[in-house]
Amino acid sequence: MKKVKIYVTLRESILDPQGSAVKGSLTQIGYEEVQDLRIGKYLELTIGDTDRDIDTIVKEMCEKVLTNVVIEDYRFEIEEAN
């Protein structure tokens, strides 16, 4: 069994008004060193034993359903699940 951790964020070229607002409040309460803040999504998949290549199927799932590549970037990590 594997645990797959997927991180999704809006692409760099796209404004993240939610992230900018949160960054604004961090600045306001004294964390001026914060340069940028982007809010994204975190997905965790548990994948059972399979003959298929995990890397390939996770990439497929990300591009078909889990993310919209027009507006989002993603990366993932695959770990052994207990």
């Binding site: 008004p17 027009v70 507006i71």
Partner: peptide, 17 residues
């Protein structure tokens, strides 16, 4: 329709959220 690729682009959250 944009998710289906029948139209190009995507719809983001409104600028003022």
């Amino acid at each position: 329709l944009t998710e289906a690729g029948l139209l190009p682009g995507a719809l983001l959250r409104n600028r003022d959220l």
